[in-house]
Amino acid sequence: MAGAGVLDRLKELGLSEYESRIYAALLRGGPAKVADLAVKAGVPRTKAYDAVKSLGRKGLVEVRGRPLMCMAVDPEEALGEMVEDEERRARRLRRILEELRRLGRGTGSLEGQEGRYSLVAGTAIVDRLRELISGAAREVHGMLDHWGVELALESKREIRAAALGDVEVRLVLDGYDEESARNAELVEFARVTSRGGGWSAFTFDGRMALLLDSGAGVGMLVESPLIVEALDSLFEEMWRSGMPLERFLELLRAGVTSAAGLVGGEVEIYAGAIEAMLSNFSIEDLAPVADAAYSRFVRLLPEMEAEPVEAAVVVWGALLGGGLSHSSVRYDQLTKIMTIEYGSQARMPPTPWFLAFLGYLRSRGIEPSVVHSSTEQGMSVLQLKLPIKTQLI
C-alpha cells in the first residue's frame, strides 16, 4: 500500500481514505480488475467498487475493456482539473460570503470588514468541526442541509460533551430533506424549518464560523465578527420559525406525507394536527386548526375562493389524493358523500390538505359529518357527508 504521506496528500484534495488507497494503488501498480485492486489497496471489495465509481466521477479513474480494467488517469491531467475545481469552489464560497454580507440585518455594512478566511477540505472538515465544538465556551449554532447533518452526526460525541458542559447547542435542519431531518439522534438539539439546501453554517461563540458548500464539498473558516453576527441573526430567525425536531418526527410517524410543506409556517397548525392524529378526535375538535390551515392555503391559491362549491370539492379531492399514499378520493354528487381511502392507520387523512379542506368547508358554512370510519391491514376509509346545496342553473 502507499505510504501515509501520499495518502494524506490525496485526502487533502478531498479524496476519502478508500479513494486515496485505490488511486495510489493504480498509480503504483498499473491497470487492474476491481477485485485485484481491492486486495492491493487493502480495501474491502464492496467498498472498492464504490470508490472506483466515485473516482470515475471525479475524473481520476477510467474503466475500460473486457474484463473491466481500472486505469488511473495521468496525475498531471487529473489533478490539474482538481486544482481548477478547488479554485472554482473557493470562488463559489466567496460568493456565498458576499450573499451572507448582504444578510446582515442591523449590523451596518460588512464591506471592508477585516477577517481571516481559510479553506478546509476532505477529512480535515470533520476534524476541524470537532475541534471547534470542543473548544466552544458558550454556544454552538448550526444551519444544516444534508451534508451538514452528516457532519453533525459524525461529531455527535463532541456535541453531547459540549451540551453537558453547559454550552448551548442549537441546530436548524432543512425540513425539505426529510431523510436528514429524520435523525432522531439530534432530537434534543434541533428544530426543522424550510430553509433550503445547498449550504450549511456552524457558528461558535459569536466569533468564528464554518461555512460549508455542499455542492463543492469544501468548507471555509471565517473569523469575522460582523459576518458571524449576520449568520447568528439569520439563525435566530430560522430557530424562531422552526418546529422542534421531535414534533416533526411525530408527524412523519403519523403518516404525514408532506410535513415539510408546513414547516416554518403557523406552528399551531402542527400542534393541532399532531394532537388530532395521535388521539381521539372529532371534526369539531379540528375547527381552529382547520381555519388556520385554510387561511394559509388561500394565500397560496386565492383563485379557489371564486369556484362554485361543488366544482371546488372536485379540486379538493384531487389535492387530497395527491397528498396521500395509496389513496383514492371520490365524491358522489347525488348522496353528497366524499369517500377517502388512504394507506395509513391515522384516524384522519394525514395530509395538511385535509385540514385546509375542512377549513374551506367551514368558510362556506358547511359542517361535514362522519358517516363511516374504518381501518384494516394498514388501509383506512373515511366517509364524510357534505350538506352542500346544489346550485340550480
Rank of each mutant, 00 (worst) to 15 (best):
A2E: 08
G242K: 07
S328E: 08
M220T: 10
A259M: 15
I283H: 04
G14R: 04
A216Q: 05
V371H: 13
M379Y: 08
Y49N: 01
E77K: 10
L27F: 00
E310D: 10
L301T: 15
R364K: 11
D85W: 15
T335D: 07
E84I: 13
V309S: 01
V187E: 12
M1V: 11
W353Y: 14
M220S: 07
W147V: 11
I340G: 01
I159N: 08
F357N: 14
L252K: 12
P387D: 01
A35F: 06
F248N: 08
M1G: 15
E158C: 00
G122W: 03
G56K: 09
L129D: 11
N280A: 08
G197P: 12
C70R: 07
S327I: 04
A41L: 01
E87C: 07
R21T: 03
M82L: 14
E367V: 11
G5N: 10
E188H: 13
P302T: 03
A41V: 01
W239E: 09
C70N: 02
P349R: 13
V256H: 01
E86C: 10
V371D: 11
K40P: 03
P225G: 04
Y18E: 10
H326T: 14
E158Y: 08
A48R: 09
G112Q: 06
L171F: 04
L234V: 14
A230I: 01
R299A: 15
P67W: 02
D127A: 09
S282L: 00
W353V: 15
D36V: 00
A181I: 10
E139Q: 14
D177P: 13
A137N: 06
S118Q: 09
Y342R: 14
I393K: 13
S295G: 15
Y49P: 01
A137R: 12
V228T: 03
T335K: 10
L129V: 02
M243Q: 12
D36G: 05
G142I: 05
A72S: 07
R170W: 09
K389P: 06
E168H: 09
S20E: 02
V63T: 15
L334S: 14
M238K: 11
S373H: 15
M1Q: 12
S134W: 10
V314G: 07
L186Y: 05
L97P: 15
L252Y: 14
E19S: 03
D332W: 00
V256G: 00
G3V: 02
V289W: 04
K53A: 12
P244A: 00
K53M: 04
V218G: 11
G322A: 04
M348Q: 05
L355M: 08
A152K: 08
L320Y: 02
S16Y: 05
G261T: 13
T46A: 11
V381Q: 09
I159A: 06
A184P: 09
L300D: 13
V149I: 13
R66E: 14
V34E: 04
G135I: 11
A254K: 07
L286M: 13
E284G: 14
A35H: 13
L384V: 05
R160A: 05
M348L: 10
I366E: 13
G264R: 06
A276F: 01
G56V: 07
R9K: 09
M238P: 11
M338Y: 06
V309C: 00
F202S: 03
I125R: 08
S180K: 10
